[in-house]
Design a protein around this nucleic acid. Structure first.
Lengths: 123, 123
DNA sequence: TCCACATTTCCAAATTTGTTGAAATATCGT
DNA sequence: ACGATATTTCAACAAATTTGGAAATGTGGA
């Protein structure tokens, strides 16, 4: 996953509305939810929801499938796991040696907080 | 980590500039970088950078420390790991049984793709 | 074919973000 | 104390996002 794709996903998640949509769809896995029902559940104007749905689908976060005159949306969990991977890598890279998930999740990263930070500024 | 805090972090990461700043600071761990040097490295106007730095700091993604007339910024890896946790939980919740990180990272989530999705719409 | 319905597209207004240059604040070195 | 430097704050502006209503599109049922 490249930075550009990551930014697109974060853009999606950076709106309360869209994050709400995504969380709702994750809970609704693997069935998914039809657009109108999302609008009802989250109390969003259809036209406004459609706008967000399009954004999220374009970012690859959602999958659509036509079902008669309904459109059923589903969360793309695979992409989300890629995002987690991106974040995990970018969380650790550059830090001494091998920081594993467990190290980070546990709070403190060994050997990453007590050096002698010398200024390397130019002035 | 609540949804509100998560949205704030995603807002930070949803800008190419800010994601660039964060990645730079992650690489610069545990020393951190002084504001002016970030501006130079990323070629951003000081005033504009300051704007982003403030946003990111308010979201808790960055830590600041004064060093003479310099301000040294560091990435808050702890918060980032919380975000990863938030994402992981929201990626799996509602899906049958115990989806672990490994299950997701490996790509396919067992038992989450072959049911018989019946419509539950109201119309 | 005609009507009802689900959803999207279009459009204009409101809101939010991001950028810039100038001025303010604060610290260092002399 | 003074001048130079680092960074922020401020104000104005440009640009992007978000919203909701009306109209268009497409599907299904009678």
């Amino acid at each position: 996953m490249d930075e550009k794709a990551a930014v697109a996903v974060f853009e999606c998640l950076s709106s309360g509305v869209r994050l709400g949509v995504f969380r709702l769809l994750v809970k609704a896995e693997p069935v998914g939810i039809v657009a109108g029902d999302i609008a009802t559940a989250l109390d969003i104007a259809p036209s406004s929801l459609s706008f967000h749905l399009r954004t999220m689908t374009q970012a690859g976060l959602l999958r659509v499938e036509q079902e008669g005159r309904f459109l059923r949306y589903r969360a793309n969990l695979g992409l989300m796991s890629e995002v987690v991977g991106f974040l995990t890598e970018n969380c650790c890279s550059g830090v001494a040696g091998g920081c594993r998930d467990a190290d980070i999740l546990s709070g403190r990263i060994p050997g990453c907080g007590s050096s002698n930070p010398a200024r390397e500024s130019k002035a």
